[in-house]
Write a protein that binds this DNA or RNA. Structure first.
Lengths: 329, 329
DNA sequence: CTGAAAGCGCTAACAC
DNA sequence: GTGTTAGCGCTTTCAG
């Protein structure tokens, strides 16, 4: 940088300003400095800048795994929105292990990231305290907590499970199956699902898959359920890809959907609009979740007033052909 | 850090060593220092460390989008392997735009990342030169270049397309369809696909989807192809999810797979083992690609000898039920 | 609008 | 095994 300053005949500060606050530099000077930068191939060292300014312009996000469309689409929009705001994304995968999450948080705090996006609300009290003490802007996603660490954007998983059951019950089903990962948010949905079923005299058979819940696990689980309980007439899959697997399994066994079995997915991934019949599903606004998380952080970091610290994105049961004949498709 | 030093009655350097090279500190001293760190809640500032040591312990990766299972699984294993090696991942999405990629590279060089993982070989000469000048370890993935920037791990997309066609031709098909994204690697596969078809007197109808190639685009494309060319008997989808969409479309139209139409996928995602019939596909070792990329970088950064700068992971055509009756499933 | 001085919090040498 | 001395390359006051 001092080379640039010398070449342009100005001081270090002026070069710094030319880079960071071009408006506060006389246009003519700016041109000279830029020419010098160009000629010397100068790339400002952001690490040094971060150290001096105490702002890293890096946001960290921790997700269970990115190899799950449900999270990768959230991270996608998160990363895009941050990039537009001049921030970059440091990614951590916890593999659903809370200890791993805590270790990642330590590393991220050490890097002095400007903000943190977490998945869920399962953090230990110790971790919560640490984050609060660090004064780090935090957004929790994918759940809605009564006592968020800082900010949050999500929806009620339990309510979503409840709504799923209600949809199936409304179509006359009483023997319901649940296929999902053995993972906290999926369990919350199961809880809501069970509650709604119980309230209407329904019954629930649950099959839990140890994460990662890959598509190819769904068919066999469904076969197991059918073998044990042939009277099950509806199944709620906690991910549209799992549901697609179940649909294929139904085709294979000659079970007609929705006549013999109704299938309800979760997520409203693109796949839900590609199956036959089209997949009824619980729509979650994944992309918006990432975008809002980014916006909340950016607002905080630029001291803009924040309308709310807690955003409920809700969910919507989308009725398509896999649960009812009358519906679209 | 000086607070810790004072509290422990040692110098700054000793604290630094206690953190970074605990072996070179007397066990007793180490204990005292750690106690002080604990008590003061000291979290070392890695930014300052990076500036002083000129090593950031950050690797950056640029992928077109992470909202595509094909890339997210590579990034997943990349990130895991890096984490195990003590490195963190800074993620950039280019959205298939080369200009965006160049901008990201600038930002990453500015952050003084220790290494860079790129997708493909489409970089401009200017960018290649810049990276070489920066002396930054670079791994290109998902392709195999004659003239890599530095290191690479991938496979030949053209050969994969060729093998796909060969598989279909071997099953007697001559009127072939290709469904894929309008994106460089997909186009390379189309090229190989066409070559192999032409060599055997086959014919290819191609339908290109503007990225992102979402699943729900596949069925309609296939319908279009069938309408225009009812004599098409085999279709190669450049992604297993697209292929799943085509399978559903076939079910819908009463086309039997593989009797009326053979369907071949790409990737060997978990979905390929969940469809009915099971999906024949071109298997790509995505997870291994990320892992190897990470290992190559880590080796370089620790000055370990590197066996090769270029790794060909190959691919394999997996025959399942969607292209031939005889196969498994 | 521009500059001079004083760090940001750590690590690299080199001594002891 | 531990300490001393200099920075790493920027940004931040505060003057002018």
């Amino acid at each position: 940088m001092s080379d640039v300053a010398r070449a342009a005949g100005v001081s270090l500060v002026t070069v710094s300003r030319a880079v960071n606050e071009p408006d506060r530099v006389k246009p003519e000077t700016l041109r000279t400095v830029r020419a010098a930068m160009q000629k010397l191939g100068f790339v400002p060292n952001l690490t040094a800048g971060s150290l001096a300014s105490r702002r890293s312009r890096i946001i960290a996000a921790i997700v269970p795994t990115i190899a799950n469309l449900v999270f990768s689409e959230t991270v996608d929009s998160l990363s895009r929105t941050l990039a537009d705001g001049g921030y970059q994304l440091l990614l951590g995968q916890s593999g659903y292990r809370l200890g791993e999450e805590a270790a990642l948080v330590d590393a991220f705090i050490g890097r002095r990231v400007d903000g943190l996006v977490l998945t869920g609300d399962g953090q230990s009290q110790e971790l919560r305290d640490k984050l609060r003490r660090a004064g780090l802007p935090v957004v929790q996603t994918w759940e809605l907590s009564d006592n968020p660490i800082d900010m949050q954007v999500g929806f009620s998983n339990k309510a979503a499970g409840h709504a799923a059951a209600t949809h199936l019950l409304a179509h006359g089903h009483r023997r319901l199956a649940f296929i999902g990962a053995q993972e906290i948010r999926s369990m919350q949905r199961l809880e809501g699902f069970r509650e709604a079923a119980a309230a209407s005299g329904g019954e629930v058979v649950a099959e839990l898959i140890r994460p990662p819940a890959l598509v190819d696990g769904a068919g066999p689980r469904f076969a197991q359920i059918r073998a044990a309980r042939p009277d099950v007439t509806a199944v709620f899959c906690n991910n549209d890809l799992l549901a697609a697997g179940v649909l294929f399994e139904c085709h294979l066994r000659g079970l007609r959907v929705p006549d013999h079995v109704a299938v309800l997915g979760f997520g409203d991934l693109a796949m839900a609009r590609a199956t036959s019949p089209r997949l009824s599903t619980v729509q979650i606004r994944r992309a918006e979740m990432g975008e809002r998380a980014a916006q909340m952080l950016l607002a905080r970091l630029t001291n803009e007033p924040l309308s709310t610290k807690s955003v409920d994105l809700g969910f919507e049961v989308i009725a398509r052909g896999s649960t009812s004949r009358g519906s679209a498709d």
